[in-house]
Amino acid sequence: MATDTRRAVVDLLGRYGILLAFLLQVLIFSQLSPYFMTGENLLNVSLQASINAIIAAGMTFVILTAGIDLSVGSVVALAGIVATTVCKVDLPFPLNIGAGIAAGLLFGTLSGLGGGLFVTRFRITPFIITLALMTIWRGAAFVVTDGRPVWELPAEFASLGGGRLGGIPVPTIVMLAVYAVAHVVLTRTRFGRYVYAVGGNIEAARLAGVRPQRILLAVYAISGVLSAVSGILLASRMNSGQPNAGGMYELDAIAAVVVGGTSLQGGRGTLVGTFIGAMLIAVLRNGLNLMNVSSYLQQVIVGLVILLATMIDQAKKT
């Protein structure tokens, strides 16, 4: 009986551990700071979380195939620069903004396809090729801008990241839309099922008729395009294309995915988990800010929480 109860608790922790940790955190901060539970602060948290959460959604696809994408932070920077540069061309509104967004997204897609091509065709490990892309795009971002931000954008550009619709920040809406679509793709389409199959056992998947190369190309393209979405939103919030934007974002995204319970070995994980993981990290940062915890100490605490959350996740496997 006692072991049964223990099993049940461990089971519950495994299944809902991250959610419980997240709710616990919300409870603690709402007690410690009166400002925390206000609508304005929560919208603010969602805005702050959105950039990382959107990248992490793409990262989830990649990690589900047992891959990794380290290039996302540099894609954020370069997609922002491409988008801001293109939207300065002499076109009437909204064509200029549309062209900028399209160019940024195109860059992200091509970057992802390129990385995916190296993984599938030339059998370079994802870690290495995306590490190379991370360095290349970061360097390129400085080369094409000569190290200076892209300024003097059309006035409308800033409303992408800074605007609100019905009181809700645009990046928050984009994030929710991305998660809704991506969740359906992953759980309700053949492609989504194949992503799990490839991550579970690529050989067995291939022998069952899956074409793993196509699936791998697609997940890196998804990661690239979602990084570009974040890059454009970020550039808009900063009202400039910054070559140093998105530094270390790859690690934040990986942290959200892993905290959300997705296995780095591939084949197991959900977007709901990643979403909660991203929110957990954002709430933690926000709460610590409200409590005036120094940013140095914040890093230590965030690191510890990532560790703790992952250990809770491990509990279900033993």
């Binding site: 389409t189 053949r190 989504g192 099922r193 579970g200 050989e203 998947a205 022998l207 069952a208 084949g267």
Partner: peptide, 27 residues
């Protein structure tokens, strides 16, 4: 080389015929 151990019995059975288990494009 056969089973996907991360998947259920049903998912393993339909893996090679998923196309026939769709309605309006969705599994």
């Amino acid at each position: 080389l056969g089973l996907l151990m991360n998947m259920s019995v049903a998912e393993n059975i339909t893996l090679s015929s998923l196309g026939a288990h769709r309605r309006r494009g969705f599994v």
